[in-house]
Design a protein around this nucleic acid. Structure first.
Lengths: 147, 147
DNA sequence: CTGTCTGTATGATAACACCCAAACAGGGAA
DNA sequence: TTCCCTGTTTGGGTGTTATCATACAGACAG
């Protein structure tokens, strides 16, 4: 079975790329998709998949290690840290609401009707469509770039 | 009656200050608190209230003007734009999808169930959508800083 | 050992974000 | 007119973000 991670980088958002990557790794850990011991995409793999410079990925991974989310092992790869606890449930809720609020504001600015917004959100949720997994063994993930 | 705008700037977020200000103005406009013709805080007033440099506010206002949200009039002030910027259906669709996809990816990373996402989006749409008001007189707003 | 994967580390370059100070110019009221 | 509000513009400074190219070093299979 192939596991995929969806990474979405929005250059127009003004948010630094390395920080967007950090957030998304944290979200995967918080959501349970990435579990203790799982191997993250290598620096070069992630960099080429997202067409960013490896240095940028290094920065993201280094900061994530400083935050205790991941561990990097020379010559082996980057792995989800044991003592992760990257994000609290409350922070997850805040993150979701912030993103939803942003969508709501933008849609209102664009004068899109609420039903239309709901429809599009449903479509995009289906498009992302995660693969359900109850596997307990540490796995390696590939990247699905989103730009 | 005194009208107040609450501005909150988070320096640790990594999001550029001028962009945080832009988002909040957009939110007020989308939500109907700021209406066509309303006068925004002056550049210097907003800058001193938030203890940021006036140049930063200039950048935010300039970008907002480029987005068609506000208009700046030399010697008079900054006002909420009358005419919504002309945008094609296609541009509207692209912008909406981009924002929706961002939310979908993030929700998936957090392993939030699609129904839950829809619920939150509905709530945020309701929170943004203004109750139609009969008051048409333009007003001036002051700033209450949040730091 | 060799090849190839992995992370680690530089220095140079460019663009952006933010601050600071100062000056210029329009609008409107005393 | 003068005064004080307003936006406009310029030049200089610092730190961050991100790119590119290059090199070094650990892990491991063949």
């Amino acid at each position: 079975m192939i596991h995929r991670l969806h990474f979405q980088i929005d250059e127009r958002s003004g948010v630094p790329v390395y920080r967007q990557m950090m957030d998304q790794v944290k979200y995967y850990v918080a959501g349970g998709t990435l579990r203790q011991g799982d191997q993250l995409p290598s620096i070069r793999e992630l960099a080429s998949a997202l067409t960013v410079n490896p240095t940028t990925v290094v920065k993201a991974y280094t900061e994530l290690e400083r935050d205790g989310v991941i561990e990097m092992r020379h010559g082996k790869g980057a792995f989800v840290s044991g003592r992760a606890k990257a994000i609290t449930r409350e922070e997850q809720e805040v993150a979701l609401r912030r993103s939803a609020k942003q969508l709501a504001v933008e849609a209102t600015q664009l004068q899109v009707t609420p039903p239309r917004v709901i429809t599009v959100v449903r479509e995009e949720l289906n498009a992302v469509n995660p693969s359900p997994s109850a596997d307990e063994t540490p796995v390696k993930f590939t990247v699905v770039p989103g730009r």
